[in-house]
Structures are given as C-alpha cells and as structure tokens.
C-alpha cells in the first residue's frame, strides 16, 4: 500500500488490486463512521481510494501506512436486483468473444454476483466487478454517439448500466427499466460503491 499526498488536503491510497481497493474502501468508510477518520470525500476507483478534505493529511497518511485491510468484504446488505432483457446490439460480438452461443451470454452474466467497485463517468454510473476473467471484453473500437439510458454494458472487467443516454464505447448486452439515477429520490443513486448487485433475466432473452 502506498499513500500519496495530493495537494494540501487530500491523500491517494494506492493498493495492488481492485479487490484490495474495495476492501480498503469498506474499511475507510467503517473508520469514518466510527469517528477514527475525517474526510469530506472517500472516492474509490480501480486501484486507489482518494481521501479528499482531510484536515491533517500528513498525520492521517502516517496512520494509514500500517493499516491492516480486512480480506473479506462486508456482506451485510442484500444484493440489489436489476431485471435485464438480454437483447443488446453487441450480444453476438460478446458471445463470439466468450466463445458461447448468444443466448448463453445472459445466463452467464446473470449467474455472476456483482459488486459496485466505484462510480464515475456520470452521476450514478457504477463500475461493477464480478464477471470471471475469461468474460472480460475490450471496448468497442468506435464509441457510439448515443447509448440509450438503461443499457447494460461490458468493458474490461466491468459491467455498467447507463443512467441516462450518453456517448459510450462499452459493449451493450442488454437493457433495464430500472432507474439508476433520480436526483429527486433518496438516495439518488441506486448503486453506491460497495453495493452488491444481481442481474435478473426477464422477457425473451
């Protein structure tokens, strides 16, 4: 684990894997809730957790340096279920990359248990991990100018659901009517970092 200072009031904690970053994030949230850590923002990402708005960064960095990271992620919350029609336009390509018939893609995807590693790109857009390594796929060579809201998509190790229509280069395997982001709702984001997620196939898939 490396703790890198960022400006005058932030720290970037870098670990060696995505799993470790998720465990570190859970541990930092726990410490903040217990009053052992002060940070305005705790922002997990692929291999790091950013602590922003830290009053005494050098002191906090020294305390973090030897922090033991629990190996087991908390499982206290039930998975969020997202119904999906596995009817995406990139289903045939993903099936070819996985070397399975197209109708198998939904079955394999829905069998995995996911966790929101981090959010970014757009409010409420979660980067979900949980697919086996052999199911990781590259981005499309040319991004689409408009991906419809509710599209369920793959890129690299991640699954994501587009909270609203936006440009995007991920491989689209399905769609959902679930509202991922609604600023009028509490909480606005359905998927927050650390949340467990399952995709449930619906309709002709």
């Amino acid at each position: 684990m490396r703790v890198l200072p960022v400006g005058d009031s932030a720290l970037l904690v870098e670990v060696s894997s995505g799993e470790e970053a998720q465990a570190l994030h859970a541990e930092l949230l726990r410490r903040r809730a217990a009053g052992e850590l002060t940070a305005a923002e705790i922002v997990p990402a692929a291999r790091t957790v950013l602590l922003d708005g830290v009053p005494e960064p050098s002191r906090t960095a020294a305390r973090l340096a030897g922090l033991p990271i629990p190996r087991v992620l908390p499982r206290d919350q039930e998975p969020i279920e997202i119904p999906v029609r596995y009817d995406g336009p990139d289903l045939p390509e993903v099936a070819a990359l996985w070397d399975v018939p197209p109708k198998e893609v939904g079955r394999i995807h829905a069998a995995a248990e996911f966790r929101v590693a981090f959010c970014g790109f757009a409010p409420g857009f979660g980067y979900l991990t949980g697919l086996p390594d052999r199911c990781h796929v590259p981005r499309r060579p040319t991004p689409r100018t408009a991906v419809p809201a509710g599209s369920v998509a793959l890129a690299g190790p991640y699954t994501g659901v587009y909270p609203r229509s936006s440009p995007g280069g991920w491989q689209l395997i399905g769609s959902t009517d679930t509202v991922l982001w609604d600023p009028a709702r509490v909480p606005a984001a359905l998927l927050a970092p650390g949340a467990r997620v399952r995709f449930v196939p619906v309709g002709a898939g």
């Binding site: 960022v6 400006g7 932030a10 997990p44 990402a45 692929a46």
Partner: peptide, 10 residues
C-alpha cells in the same frame, strides 16, 4: 492509468 479519484485544482 487505471481510473482514479480527482481533486479540485488537479
């Protein structure tokens, strides 16, 4: 770089 958190003024 694997995607990471960004601060104001970065």
């Amino acid at each position: 770089l694997p995607s990471e958190g960004m601060v104001l003024g970065a």
